[in-house]
């Protein structure tokens, strides 16, 4: 199945070939769309008003490791996060971790 992961890979390769310098495969716009899906439970900008943990302003490395651990099913006591994290590529999870770490809590 031609998922967006494959298409993105092709785009990245093309861009790397065409331009010198570091290329992020995910645009700012795309990361903000991905991040929007987190707000439903973690609050707008990850500033949770309720029982679900806030993620705004959390440490980037910790967030990234936690997301990858959820994806691998390695977090004991996880209720739904593994089922969510498996829906994203490692690169997307990394971008999300950076995105939320840069928000003022």
């Amino acid at each position: 199945m031609f998922s967006k992961h494959f298409r993105r890979g092709v785009v990245v390769a093309a861009m790397l070939a065409a331009f010198a310098g570091p290329a992020s495969a995910l645009s700012e716009d795309e990361v903000s769309v991905l991040a929007g899906t987190c707000a439903n439970c973690h609050g707008t900008d990850g500033r949770s008003p309720g029982a679900i943990p806030a993620i705004a302003g959390q440490d980037y490395d910790i967030l990234r490791e936690q997301l990858l651990a959820f994806k691998a099913g390695e977090v004991e006591g996880a209720t739904i996060m593994t089922r969510h994290a498996t829906g994203y590529t490692d690169e997307e999870l990394d971008a999300l971790a950076r995105y939320f770490s840069e928000i003022e809590p």
Binding site: N40, S48, P49, G50
Partner: peptide, 12 residues
Amino acid sequence: YAVGWYDAIAND
């Protein structure tokens, strides 16, 4: 978490 979700989405 269900209650936490409702609080978050209503706020969002």
